[in-house]
Design a binder for these strands. Sequence first.
DNA 1: ATGAAAGCGCTAACAC
DNA 2: GTGTTAGCGCTTTCAT
Lengths: 366, 366
Amino acid sequence: MNRPMRTRRQATLASLAAELGVSRTTVSNAYNRPDQLSPELRRRVLETAKRLGYPGPDPVARSLRTRKAGAVGLLLTENLSYAFRDPAAIGVLEGLALACEDAGVGLHLVPASPGREDVAAVHRAGVDGFVVYSVPDDDPHLQAVLQRPVPTVIVDQPQIDGVDRVGPDDEAAIVSIANHIVSLGHRQIGVLCMRLGRDRNDDFVPLHRQQNAHFHVQRARLAALKRTFEAAGVAWETVPVVERFEHHVDDGASAARQLLDAYPRVTALICTSDILALGALAEAGRRGLRVPADLTITGFDGIAEATRAGLTTVHQPVLEKGKAAGKLLLGAGDRVAHKVITLPTELHVGTTSAPPRTAEQHWFGP
Amino acid sequence: MNRPMRTRRQATLASLAAELGVSRTTVSNAYNRPDQLSPELRRRVLETAKRLGYPGPDPVARSLRTRKAGAVGLLLTENLSYAFRDPAAIGVLEGLALACEDAGVGLHLVPASPGREDVAAVHRAGVDGFVVYSVPDDDPHLQAVLQRPVPTVIVDQPQIDGVDRVGPDDEAAIVSIANHIVSLGHRQIGVLCMRLGRDRNDDFVPLHRQQNAHFHVQRARLAALKRTFEAAGVAWETVPVVERFEHHVDDGASAARQLLDAYPRVTALICTSDILALGALAEAGRRGLRVPADLTITGFDGIAEATRAGLTTVHQPVLEKGKAAGKLLLGAGDRVAHKVITLPTELHVGTTSAPPRTAEQHWFGP
DNA sequence: ATGAAAGCGCTAACAC
DNA sequence: GTGTTAGCGCTTTCAT
């Protein structure tokens, strides 16, 4: 296998045409519309191209002319490690990539860490549309995306009027978890949640922060929990909520530790992600708490590892989410009305939830 | 938050300039070289732009002019699910994405499933270079990439003269595993390996297929094993090698089953990836074989789950691999000589390897 | 500090 | 089946 020359693009479509003594159109057709010229001529063109080291039409020039970049951008503001280590995020990425593959278009990951307020990358991306995945509602990159005159689909959050969106039925999902917990009899609960804004707060979350969370999904989940538990007679102000900025299993563990240290009487820990729940599970083990006898723990997402661990959680179809976003975007055409696609979720009751030990057991127990 | 108009790009840099009664240069400068015009004029330009709904310079046109796409392509020929479900591959992807982020360039995933022989996507990608990850040496997409007049870096495989490459010291790695097994005293071994070519062969692997494998890495690993074991007096023709086309834990399990059914006297199973090894581990459990007392199992990669499982394996720095590839590509400039970067690996002896039960134990055992 | 001129490399009408 | 004509929207010397 020998290397082609790596010198600066020497031949262009025009020079090839000149060399051959034909028009540029003909050369262009040789590549793009084989049926528009005689096979013989086409053969000659391609052969000469090879001889001259002409690599075929320049993709950028073609894009300019055709007004199609052949790629969709993916905005994923969280720092990448956050995304690449969350199986749920990877599922979305895979689904989106699958949809792109089907359509034969590339998937362009936009470099946008939370640190760099540098929105230029969004402007520089040669894409026909954007998928935005789970960013806070005040994200400057998102603003920049919405400025671009191309269709956009948001996955999960935020919810923005007039912008296509695909996400799970979050409301129903979290309510199903909450009802499960309530009906088991739990009244002393605690909540572990993911970051609520772009600022770090690895601590308990006061009410106003819960209500002003910049991540719509987390905000909605907390609100739904509040509603459900208050309906069951639990005063939400008494429910401890602990937040973590990072999203690894260890963070779930430390959050659980912080919460249980301060509220040892809690009988159920509701986590807004499986990752956090897996950490909580580990922490429970470390403290000698039996799950679910001593402590009920629930997650959210339904990732494979959670299933293996028997976690009670709500499963959401992440792969489908990504696929749906891709299809929605690629089929956007000149659609007038915008679309919101809501995907179903499903409560999976595992082996980590059970009724709380009764008050008697607590007071007179072993 | 209100939606910008989604109508076809109405304003261009030229029309903006006309509207303002200034030259296009000035408008361009307002965006790209703020120091080249008076703050006052710049303000006017930007404001008018907003009023006219001009979204800023078109990225594709800019790319054509500057001859910089601001993105690197990633060719990942395997079907995406293969890649997105292998933690080692994800590590590479993350590392590469990190490097791109640092440099402020996008990462363009090229749609190229093995099914679609459609190489056009490679031609259509507006990128400044390519990273190719672990493809067979006869991959047509790879050919297409090499045709393009942009720098290319190959990760892992194949090895091609004159093309930059970054990969682990595979040779040393696999030899360290082999020596470990040999020195423990194993002589009855079996091997589980990943796909050796683009054709499916979920079965035992005859010698000629081993030697002609189109995946360089697998070929090299098998060759190194052969060498090492023959030096220890094991005739390689007697060593069963089972191949799997897919690469999930279940595939490792079924491969182990196939091998152990036919060769029950095997005392050590060498797997060319941790995923396969995890499957083998599961299968061993299913058969009531104790690991490592009854059966030694080793992996390759050092993924997190393997570490948790205590697997004896060779760890390779996947994140670094991706980062190195990105840096190499982005720093390529007009370098003359090509580079090969070899990353160190490390044998991690876990709890899945031990000396074999002696012949006596085999024959007169319980 | 601003403008005029000259393409970057290609494709799409439309004519022949 | 092949060529002619016109840009796509922008940046960049080089003048002024």
